[in-house]
């Protein structure tokens, strides 16, 4: 997979994005028409698999280089990759703990939130993941101009997501009576979206760093670990939302 040419990589990126978009639409439909939790969980898992394999290229962890020179950049790159994935594993437990808390507190009910608004911010984040993938592929092929373009687009969409959640979604939830201090349902909603938004903001900081350094020409097609790390981290944030979105907006009966 590492030796894909530019057009193959583009085709793959688009194809995965289309799959993810269709699955997201299907999810919305399943939630409103059937309401099957099992089906929703299955769709989320498929989406997670697609992102983890194609966008986060988790298979790169398996590249066997035990015989390589320990001081070579390639060997250190693989070590860095392992370190990043270990960090993501650790972080998964935070979000997993929040998801468990949500089901413990609310069971199969959900707070009265605006599902269309949820779908919109989800789409924004999904689209940002697509451009993030394009940015990384561009850098892999040494295409600095497109890297800057796509990273900027990702940044803009990421910012739109944060504004959407903190600036639109939170006030509208409060208007619906879902506030942090009135009920446990409100508390867990703000905790989950808040923790996720915190990660998005840190991801935006990383994007700013690689955008600036990329514009200064510090990365090349051979050497761009910072770009890869920021990319994988950004997709990880997307993966978290793949599970949080149905957990908050789609699953279960509305709390009256």
């Amino acid at each position: 997979m590492a030796h894909m040419n530019k057009s193959e990589a583009l085709r793959q990126g688009v194809l995965i994005f289309v799959f993810l978009a269709v699955l997201t639409a299907l999810e919305f439909f399943v939630a409103s028409a059937i309401g099957s939790v099992t089906l929703l969980a299955a769709i989320a898992l498929v989406k997670f698999g697609l992102v983890a394999y194609y966008y986060m290229h988790i298979y790169k962890l398996n590249l066997n280089d035990q015989d390589a020179d320990r001081r070579s950049d390639a060997y250190k790159l693989a070590t860095n990759r392992l370190g990043l994935w270990l960090f993501l594993l650790s972080d998964t437990f935070v979000f997993g703990g929040l998801a468990v808390s949500r089901f413990n507190l609310l069971g199969l009910t959900r707070p009265p939130l605006n599902p269309t608004l949820g779908l919109i911010v989800t789409s924004v984040l999904l689209l940002s993941s697509f451009f993030m993938n394009r940015a990384e592929v561009s850098m892999e092929h040494g295409d600095r101009k497109n890297f800057i373009l796509f990273t900027s687009l990702t940044l803009a969409l990421g910012l739109a997501f944060v504004v959407g959640v903190l600036g639109v979604e939170w006030p509208s939830a409060i208007a619906e009576g879902v506030t942090p201090s009135v009920s446990a349902a409100g508390a867990i909603f703000f905790m989950m979206t808040g923790m996720h938004a915190f990660h998005v903001v840190t991801g935006l900081v990383f994007l700013l760093i690689i955008l600036r350094n990329g514009a200064r020409g510090l990365y090349s097609s051979e050497k761009h670990w910072a770009v890869e790390a920021a990319t994988v981290y950004w997709h990880f944030i997307d993966v978290v939302w793949i599970f949080f979105y149905p957990a908050l907006y789609l699953i279960g009966k509305l709390i009256k």
């Binding site: 808390s101 413990n104 507190l105 942090p180 201090s181 009135v182 009920s183 446990a184 349902a185 409100g186 508390a187 867990i188 703000f190 905790m191």
Partner: peptide, 18 residues
């Protein structure tokens, strides 16, 4: 900490917490 600071009732039965 957040329960104390912001009144988020995760563990407060009066607010539906556990």
């Amino acid at each position: 900490m957040f329960q104390r600071l912001f009144g988020m009732g995760f563990f407060d039965p009066a607010k539906g917490g556990n």
